[in-house]
Design a protein around this nucleic acid. Structure first.
Lengths: 146, 146
DNA sequence: TGCTCTGTTATATACTTTGTATAACAAAAA
DNA sequence: TTTTTGTTATACAAAGTATATAACAGAGCA
């Protein structure tokens, strides 16, 4: 049973559990961002937008690699980094599943550090504190509020 | 005249124009972040915190490389990227000087894109919209308000 | 029991990035 | 004139990225 070869339900991608997820995981081969990092970020976008939910299984490294036309190890690296950062875990029965590991104090500190650089760039470019708050709100409203 | 060898004013680093700036530009050789990117980011932090002001000259690639104990080309790469991103320009008489190129629409879009990823990570980790706003305010207050 | 699929690990290869080393050039400054 | 400047060129080593092929044990399924 191949991940990309489900002839049943021809015409729509909602016939299988994994069909929808694969639609989110796509690659821009012209991007200067590493493929595994593109995949990594898209899984995070997926979790944040609730397209991936706690306990959902991601495609297997082999099947996703085949669908995307990349090497198995490239997908595996994306999953490995996600695991190290506490976004997924390995379920021996179900494969790689979404399982976000929370460590509020540590997470908050890391997010603050990442925000610091973005805010410094914004400040250099004349983007004010209030405009940053506006941008934050814009993003949340682009992706469905709270 | 070496950048690091000014015996005059022994004991303080404010005796030369470039003395203060060099104090900001330091490297963590244990970091997994590329050296040129560390330098790149620190110049941006410096501009944002007003430690570097419009028209200020940065140390020459050779002198800074010598101070930091890295190769000339590593510093040159940091400066080249900063130039491409519109943070500095080359003044044939003064060297590399802070000169922020503003393109509000483009800058705003780029900042929004960078914020999107950070906010997605935060969302995954259970950090709420209001907590993000708090973090933004914390950062601005850590570095002197508006 | 066999067979398949899973994540994982190991090797090998090729390309790019990163960092270093040395050298040379023209423009500007001292 | 001599030094310093950014810039460019070349060469090299190490690390990161991506691919290719192969094998392993654990789990699910027929």
């Amino acid at each position: 049973m191949n991940y990309d070869a489900h002839e049943s339900g021809a015409g729509h991608c909602f016939s299988k559990d994994m069909g929808c997820e694969s639609m989110l995981l796509q690659i821009d081969f012209n991007s200067d961002e590493a493929i595994y990092m593109q995949l990594h970020n898209q899984v995070i976008y997926g979790i944040a937008t609730n397209a991936f939910r706690e306990g959902d299984a991601l495609p297997s490294v082999r099947s996703l690699a085949e669908v995307l036309g990349v090497n198995m190890h490239t997908v595996n690296k994306a999953y490995t980094v996600l695991k190290q950062e506490g976004y997924v875990k390995i379920d021996r029965r179900r494969g790689v599943v979404i399982a976000v590991d929370l460590d509020h104090l540590k997470d908050r500190q890391e997010i603050k550090q990442e925000l610091l650089l973005v805010l410094a760039k914004a400040s250099c470019k004349g983007i004010s504190r209030s405009e940053i708050h506006e941008l934050i709100d814009e993003i949340y409203e682009d992706y469905g509020g709270q």
